[in-house]
C-alpha cells in the first residue's frame, strides 16, 4: 500500500517544545516500555548487559549546543521520533506495501506482517525515525501509539501517546493539526512551530517549538528605579527604615 493518500481526514501528530524539554529521556523509556509490551514485535536489545549494548528505540533524545553571535552557548535537548510526514518518502519507497500512511489520521505505520526488512524506508527517512529490529527483522517506528489513542480499554484521558502522557515537563503535545483550533495548532501558531529539514520536502506533521530567546539582557533602564539607593550608609538606611516603618 505504497501510495500516499492524497489527503488524510485528520492530521494527528506531536508538538515538541524545545524551550521546555529538559532532556530527561522519560519519553524514550516509556515509549520503549509501551511498544515492547504492546502492538507488534517487542523492541529488542542486543548484548544488553555486555560490552556493546544496543537496541531498538522509536524515540531518542539528542542534545545540541548553539553558539549565538553574542552571549554564552546554549544547550537544547532534542527529542526525535517519526514526524508522520504528509509527503512521507519512507512510504513510497517500500517495495512490499508494508509501510503506509493511514487515510483517516495520517499516521505512518509499518504492517509488520508484510515487512521484509529491506531497510529502504529507513534510508529514505531523513530523520532517522525508523529502526530495523535486529531480533524481529522488521522495521520499527513510532506508531503515534495508535494502540493507545483509540484504545477503549484505556480511560479516556489516557488515550494519548505514552511519551506524551509521561513527559514530566509537558514538553510534548498530541493533537490534530487539521483542526486549526486544536491545542497543537494553537501552539504552532503562537510559538512559531517549525518543520525539521523543510528542504527535504517531507512536509512533517510533527512540529517543533523553538527555544525562546535566552540570556537576553534586556534594556535595564526600566529596572533602574528599583535600585535607587535609599541612603548611602548603614546609619542612613536605619533612618529610612524608621520612616518606612511608619508608613506600614
Amino acid at each position: 500500500m505504497t501510495d500516499l493518500p492524497k489527503s488524510t481526514t485528520r492530521k494527528l501528530g506531536l508538538v515538541i517544545d524545545l524551550d521546555t524539554c529538559v532532556g530527561c529521556h522519560a519519553c524514550v523509556i516509556s515509549c520503549k516500555g509501551w511498544n515492547t509490551e504492546n502492538d507488534g514485535a517487542p523492541l529488542s536489545d542486543q548484548d544488553p548487559y555486555g560490552a556493546d549494548p544496543s537496541g531498538t528505540f522509536l524515540n531518542r533524545v539528542h542534545s545540541y549546543e548553539v553558539q549565538p553571535d553574542t552571549g554564552p552557548a546554549q544547550l537544547v535537548h532534542f527529542p526525535k521520533s517519526c514526524l508522520h510526514c504528509e509527503n512521507a518518502p519512507c512510504v513510497t519507497v517500500c517495495p512490499t506495501g508494508a509501510s503506509y500512511k493511514r487515510v483517516e489520521d495520517g499516521i505512518v505505520l509499518v504492517n509488520e506482517k508484510d515487512c521484509i526488512g529491506c531497510g529502504l524506508c529507513a534510508w529514505a527517512c531523513p530523520y532517522g525515525a525508523r529502526e530495523l529490529d535486529a531480533a524481529a527483522g522488521v522495521m520499527k517506528k513510532c506508531t503515534l501509539c495508535v494502540d493507545r489513542i483509540y484504545n477503549e480499554n484505556l480511560p479516556e484521558e489516557d488515550r494519548t501517546p505514552a511519551c506524551v502522557r509521561t513527559c514530566p515537563s509537558n514538553a510534548r503535545h498530541f493533537g490534530d493539526f487539521s483542526d486549526p483550533e486544536s491545542h497543537v495548532s494553537q501552539l504552532v501558531r503562537d510559538r512559531g512551530g517549525m518543520d525539521l529539514m523543510p528542504e527535504q520536502g517531507t512536509l512533517p506533521v510533527n512540529k517543533y517549538l523553538p527555544p525562546r530567546p535566552k540570556d537576553d539582557w534586556a534594556d535595564s533602564s526600566v529596572l533602574a528605579p528599583f535600585l535607587t539607593p535609599v541612603a548611602d550608609e548603614p546609619r542612613g538606611f536605619l533612618g529610612w527604615l524608621d520612616k518606612a516603618l511608619d508608613k506600614i
Partner: peptide, 12 residues
Amino acid sequence: TGLGDGGRVRAF
C-alpha cells in the same frame, strides 16, 4: 534541528 537561526549548532 531548526536551531540554525540561533547560531552555530554543534552536536553535544
